[in-house]
Write a protein that binds this DNA or RNA. Structure first.
Lengths: 257, 257
DNA sequence: CTCGCCGTTGCATTATCTGCAACGGCCATT
DNA sequence: AATGGCCGTTGCAGATAATGCAACGGCGAG
């Protein structure tokens, strides 16, 4: 909607690929070098872009700080965290919390496994949306048209032989997930890793987040992991209760200066 | 340098404080509502801002993804990570990696303690620069004018009785740190937590990062932690060697379209 | 020593952004 | 049920601010 801002923001994903110098930025934006320079300078003043010693630009530290603050301001996360910790203490495995936003699912909290073998994941990283248990729960609850539109334009990468292969299969799976109220990922993302997940609902019953327990085959079999399902669901329901009670659409903003 | 972009980017820290509606954003920017709307829309298109169900705006998921990619592109991090893991396996405590950028020090990697009592910290979070051991190392190596300018405009919050109280004391400490080539934080940030840290240097000898081992008093005393110093320094030196060898100012960019 | 590349600057042009005013939906109030 | 006010949204004309150009200077390579 605003050309100048649009151009400036287009620089960010470009730099996310790796450092670039002024000429490269200008070329990829399709603007004059002087224009690119002014945009980069503005981004720099705000700390979103950093100029390293070799004069090339890369993304800046402020991005981390912003991402950090965003996360800490998410009220679901705050409410859920102690429950995740408790569940982790009870079962010992890695516990994740995830939310949906604009076609993506991302982890917003994580409590690490106590076992030495850990699965790789990082808070803030977009989740493999076609296979992850938490993603299935979040997508299953979308209004039908949105769900349809999304599943249509998704890719279905075959991480393993058990990955969801295409849109129709995925839609069927989502249907089932929605009805049973829980989801699994049995080696669909990484051959040797299984997850069980349960939904967290707001006061209106809509799914606002999902949590999961993940563990590699070498620690527990898929069957053993499934026995944890009741525990996971109880945790999720407890969070749902607190969340519905405390924060329907409340606004704790206090700055009427 | 560019007014429009400047205004748009000013929205981000504003939203980092918490969700806000159009009117609030416009007011705090000092612009007309229609202007604020156009800026927010542009930010939204790029995923930096998200519009929640109650129509208010908050920071968006793309921020996480960008922060994530930035981090993973840092070559020091990549080189250092296995060393951090090895050090953690050897001593069991929390290991951090930090860099300096534009007046701030931030953690860019972390391997969690194996002990149940863990110190709080998060990757991406700016470090308490006047007390953290890694910060001392990074600031001690700055060129004198920059170091002076920075220490002058810093705050010196008294987290504990052993926090660095003011600029002169801090400068003396930095002097000592630079000469001895390592640093500590003995309860200067949190009463019961101690750290020992060592610098990682580039090919030209400049400090490019710093790593530390942290542990609470209840697990090991400060004296015991200090016995780990040689190990920490060996790790840091090993990383320095690899980093100098592999990446002086190399550019792995491959896109001359 | 010289050539060429890259980042940088001042300036005139013109495109772009801004504020205004008016509309419409929604919620709360009477 | 009707009404008033609030908030987000849109089209438009004026004015400001962004753009590309051309020229400079520093730096490294040949």
């Amino acid at each position: 909607m605003s050309q100048t801002v649009d151009r400036a923001l287009s620089i960010l994903p470009l730099l996310a690929e790796g450092p670039a110098d002024l000429g490269q930025v200008a070329e990829r934006l399709g603007v004059h070098k002087s224009t690119a320079l002014r945009l980069l300078r503005t981004l720099h003043e705000h700390g979103l872009v950093y100029r390293q010693s070799d004069q090339r630009y890369r993304l800046g530290a402020r991005l981390f700080a912003l991402a950090q603050e965003t996360m800490e301001n998410l009220d679901i996360r705050e409410i859920a965290h102690p429950h995740l910790v408790r569940l982790n203490e009870a079962c010992g495995h890695t516990v994740h919390l995830a939310v949906y936003e604009e076609g993506e699912v991302l982890y917003i909290d994580k409590v690490e496994s106590r076992y030495p073998v850990r699965m790789y994941s990082r808070i803030g990283k977009p989740v493999a949306v076609t296979v992850a248990a938490v993603a299935k729960l979040l997508l299953a609850d979308l209004p039908e048209p949105e769900r349809r539109a999304l599943t249509d334009k998704l890719d279905y990468p075959l991480y393993t032989a058990r990955s969801t292969p295409n849109a129709p299969a995925f839609l069927r799976e989502l249907e089932q997930v929605r009805e049973q109220g829980w989801a699994t990922d049995l080696g669909g993302h990484e051959e040797s890793i299984n997850c069980v997940a349960a939904p967290i609902r707001g006061a209106d019953g809509r799914v606002v987040a999902a949590m999961s327990v993940s563990a590699p085959n070498v620690v527990v079999t898929a069957e053993e992991l499934l026995t944890l399902l009741p525990q996971v669901r109880r945790s999720a329901d407890a969070i749902s209760g607190e969340y519905s009670g405390r924060t329907p659409v409340t606004d704790p903003t206090r700055d009427l200066a």
